[in-house]
């Protein structure tokens, strides 16, 4: 066990844990946009930056990535940190000037509007946090989408910006997206997963018993093959399967 201090509180931690993990375990709030506990940390949004003190010197680090060490002293809300977080929100607000999630988070931090000129404000929803890409790779293991292009031209997209053969329509990307940039809609036996720059349609499987459409055929086929289930395994939906005596 290691002892660290966050905002004056003495806390116990295990080697290999990050500052953010310890803070969350102990109910200390650090804002994040690109972090999800089930995915590898990425360190892109920089909102989780904190100030650490070691050997009389201070330094700003991304708490989602910084491994704890004995005697580490952390401040999560020094004026220095607050100013930096505000600027990061101003930058995000300039990119996503109409996005409600970003507007709300900014407002919570006391940023009502960006200092940038109106002519430069953009109306994006995606903040390029990469959660969707990591979910697709690490959880679903399909890697149907990736971060393409570089720098200011970077975007989340399937190869060639066309419906990806690897996408099974599970919707994990839409689920994990913090800003609603990727959306998913089920209607009349089809599912559409889409973002500003791409979309893919899926046929939904109809339950032989209740007649409800319940999941994309491609997704069910993928699971069936992966787990080596019988061909008729997904003919009925989970609800009906449970009710079978």
């Amino acid at each position: 066990m290691i002892t660290i201090s966050i905002d004056g509180q003495e806390l116990k931690a295990k080697e290999g844990q990050t500052i953010l993990e310890i803070a969350r375990e102990n109910g200390i709030y650090i804002p994040t946009l690109c972090y999800h506990e089930n995915l590898s940390p990425y360190g892109a949004c920089r909102l989780c930056c904190v100030e650490i003190f070691k050997g009389g010197r201070s330094r700003i680090v991304a708490s989602c990535l910084y491994p704890v060490e004995e005697g580490l002293e952390v401040k999560t809300n020094s004026p220095h940190i607050i100013n930096n977080r505000k600027m990061i929100m101003e930058l995000l607000l300039a990119r996503c000037s109409q996005n409600e999630v970003i507007k709300k988070l900014a407002s919570e931090m006391g940023v009502e509007q960006s200092a940038f000129k109106a002519k430069y404000l953009e109306n994006e929803d995606c903040i390029l946090c990469g959660l969707c890409v990591r979910a697709c790779e690490q959880i679903v293991e399909r890697s149907a989408i990736s971060l393409v292009n570089r720098g200011v031209n970077r975007e989340v997209a399937p190869p060639f910006l066309e419906p990806s053969a690897d996408c099974i329509g599970c919707g994990s990307c839409a689920y994990v997206c913090p800003t609603g940039a990727i959306k998913m809609e089920d209607k009349d036996g089809t599912r559409v997963v889409y973002a500003r720059n791409w979309e893919k349609e899926f046929k939904l499987k109809k339950c032989k018993k209740c007649g409800n459409y319940w999941a994309p055929e491609e997704q069910l086929e993928y699971i069936r093959e992966k787990l080596n289930l019988p061909p008729d395994f997904f003919d009925v939906c989970p609800n009906c399967r449970e009710s079978v005596p």
Partner: peptide
């Protein structure tokens, strides 16, 4: 701006602004 990889917000967005 051309050479930023685009990963982190301050670099990608800040340099552009």
């Amino acid at each position: 701006e051309e050479e930023s990889c685009g990963k982190c917000v301050p670099c990608r967005e800040g340099i552009k602004r």
